[in-house]
Amino acid sequence: MLGLIGKRLLQLVFLLFGISFLVFMSMHLAPGDPATIIGGPTATESDLDAIRAELGLNNPILVQYLDYIRGVVQGDLGYSFQNNQSVSESIATRFPQTLNLAIASMVVAVLIGVPAGIISAIKQNSWFDVSSTTIALAGISIPNFWLGAMLILIFSVELQWLPVGGLNAPFWTIEGMKQLILPAITLGTASAAMIARMSRSAMLEVIRADYIRTARAKGVRKNVVVWVHALRNAMIPVITVIGLNFGFLLGGTIITEQVFAINGVGRLMIDAIAARDFPVVQGTVLLVATLFVIVNLLVDIIYAFIDPRISYD
């Protein structure tokens, strides 16, 4: 077990270097001279030279990369081209909103997806099963930015129950929860659908297994078999899907934040992409990708922990 974790951590370090290199290179190979973006249209050639020297843009690219990594390790992600603010600070002030949204969506996704999938499997081919699998397919197909707009239209514009957007109150207050409900449903729907599909097929597979038939044959009640014997084994692949979905949700916050005007990392990224503000794009993409691989690593470890049959050799 410890060997597995050690091996995975080592791989993680390499992967993080790879990610940072890829992100760094793609920003540096992008057309457009950062000096002209910072200097603006009025900058003279000598101004531009001064900016280039200050940013170290005349150094070989590998040296620039190593400088960047040295900064990243110390928590310095550089400065925005647009307003010269520290990228780390901008991210730090916005990240709580993004994390808040991602976790709330995860809760929505699990609370809807897992029970729906299990009931579907137990009552295979019933009306519940047919409608829930069809709704799940629709849930995967629905554009979440549109779903968000529709929810706003119904619950904020027509019924006026919930606020149109924004996320600034803490989530434990009534106001914070009200602000969180629509964005969490918007972002969580697709994940709920994926989790439901996975739970259903995992449960179906387990229910047909020999040991379940044995348990029934020796007289264990049906409910006990389903909720005690089958569920534990069916949840193993579901946990993987839930873990992978957390990364997916982190990526999805980018769009949802835009719909609900939430000042999170995603909006920061979109604005930076439009303005070609490379240090901010670099910092935000690096953050989301890093979180994603770390979550995946945790899922892998948990997976090996709950299912001793798994070995990663």
């Binding site: 992967l15 992100v23 793609s26 990364g247 980018i254 993409v285 989301v288 990708a289 994603f292 691989v293």
Partner: peptide, 25 residues
């Protein structure tokens, strides 16, 4: 496969966004 793993490290639409950030909208 290591290269493929690297591309997999970007969740969902993020990789597409990085490429658009590089190439322009």
């Amino acid at each position: 496969m290591r290269f493929v793993d690297l591309l997999f490290a970007f969740p969902g639409i993020l990789l597409a966004m990085l490429i658009i950030a590089m190439l322009g909208t």
